[in-house]
Simulated scan of single mutants.
Amino acid sequence: MKVLVTGSAGFVGYHLSLRLLSAGHEVIGVDALTDYYDVALKKAREDRLSAHTGYKARRARIEAPGLLRGMLVEERPDMVVHLAAQAGVRYSIEAPATYMAANLQGTFALLEAVRAVPVRHLLIASTSSVYGANTQMPYKETDKADTPMSFYAATKKATEAMGHSYAHLYDIPMTFFRFFTVYGTWGRPDMAPSLFADAILRGEPIRVFNHGDMRRDFTYVEDLVEGIERLMEAIPKVGQPVGEADSLSPVAPHRIVNIGNAEPVQLLDFIGSLEATLGMEAEKVMMDMQPGDVPATWADTTLLRDLTGVAMGTPVPEGVAKFAEWFREYHGL
């Protein structure tokens, strides 16, 4: 296949593009390489992708007028995987306008482009943050998600609704996947694993929010992209649900799928795995909960298994060890 991947130099976009290239597919990548975090890391990811003959990169903002439609006309991809977004719960409190542009305007530009130039399947990244104030766990795709706790979550929930309207009006097969606390090699430096590892190795204290009383459904990135790859061929069709857990819309080829490890882990246990791997104990500064955050996440992955047969399989200690090895090598620590 030929696949257009937006956000191809990002954390998940890099891993997915690499997986598709390794499987023999062509990948057309588009990424703006914004300076929200270290651009050198994004360039390093892109350089590794560019070593593959099947990869073609475009540097641009997806919300630029006519950009995506032009790329679809020129490249005629079979599928599109939309991963480009402004990420981060806390940054959305500081700079909400960037989320309006990247997440809402960018997704709107993509929907308009695919309406004009259809593809077999449009897959779009969402987030577990849309579950917001829900307390019943594990989270199911059919649960209400009407209480976002951050503007980031609100923009992602809005894109799901925007996508449903286009899927219904224009018969565009569309799958949204809600990611759960992704970590792993080539991860973002603003995410907790990188912040923790950097501080521990430099002998500096780490901040532990909600006094450590946090549980997260930590999902190793290679498991995540395997799930995405398999979902590419699980094309939604109206009237053809795969079981009682299916979130398939009754009026549109539109589905939402959780991608998580289905096993929440205490934050202090995650930190403990990192300490054990690095051979160093962290100095912990206990902090109150941050605005926009939630105390726990937990994915029900029944639908993912029904659609793909995939069950996330990397235990946290194993995933943390792989991440730590990469982190030390990349940063020379």
Rank of each mutant, 00 (worst) to 15 (best):
residue 241 P to Q: 09
residue 213 D to Q: 15
residue 25 H to A: 10
residue 289 M to E: 01
residue 256 I to S: 13
residue 21 L to R: 09
residue 308 T to W: 12
residue 174 M to N: 01
residue 198 D to K: 12
residue 124 I to L: 05
residue 117 V to C: 15
residue 61 R to E: 03
residue 154 A to E: 03
residue 77 P to M: 08
residue 323 F to S: 08
residue 296 A to H: 12
residue 117 V to W: 13
residue 31 D to H: 08
residue 142 T to F: 03
residue 226 E to C: 02
residue 309 G to C: 10
residue 104 L to S: 07
residue 5 V to K: 07
residue 303 L to P: 07
residue 272 G to P: 02
residue 259 I to T: 06
residue 14 Y to D: 10
residue 224 L to M: 10
residue 253 P to I: 07
residue 104 L to N: 10
residue 241 P to T: 08
residue 243 G to T: 09
residue 281 E to P: 03
residue 48 R to Y: 11
residue 14 Y to K: 13
residue 301 T to F: 08
residue 212 G to A: 09
residue 150 S to M: 11
residue 114 V to E: 02
residue 202 R to F: 10
residue 297 T to H: 03
residue 120 R to Y: 01
residue 82 H to M: 09
residue 161 A to F: 00
residue 206 I to C: 05
residue 318 E to I: 12
residue 227 G to A: 12
residue 82 H to L: 08
residue 84 A to E: 07
residue 133 A to V: 00
residue 257 V to M: 02
residue 106 G to D: 03
residue 151 F to V: 10
residue 41 L to I: 15
residue 64 A to S: 11
residue 132 G to R: 10
residue 277 T to G: 04
residue 132 G to A: 02
residue 330 Y to F: 14
residue 9 A to P: 03
residue 93 I to F: 15
residue 35 D to K: 14
residue 52 H to L: 02
residue 66 G to Y: 15
residue 188 R to H: 10
residue 326 W to P: 08
residue 118 P to C: 13
residue 62 I to H: 08
residue 318 E to T: 11
residue 11 F to D: 04
residue 138 P to A: 02
residue 13 G to K: 07
residue 71 M to V: 04
residue 210 N to P: 13
residue 50 S to N: 06
residue 235 I to W: 05
residue 297 T to R: 12
residue 213 D to Y: 11
residue 303 L to F: 13
residue 43 K to F: 11
residue 55 Y to E: 01
residue 199 A to C: 07
residue 18 L to W: 02
residue 281 E to V: 06
residue 194 S to L: 11
residue 48 R to Q: 15
residue 158 A to L: 13
residue 115 R to N: 06
residue 315 P to Y: 09
residue 225 V to E: 03
residue 195 L to H: 00
residue 171 D to L: 04
residue 277 T to R: 14
residue 172 I to W: 14
residue 230 R to A: 06
residue 173 P to A: 12
residue 204 E to L: 15
residue 18 L to N: 06
residue 45 R to M: 13
residue 36 Y to E: 09
residue 297 T to M: 02
residue 34 T to F: 14
residue 146 D to M: 05
residue 188 R to S: 14
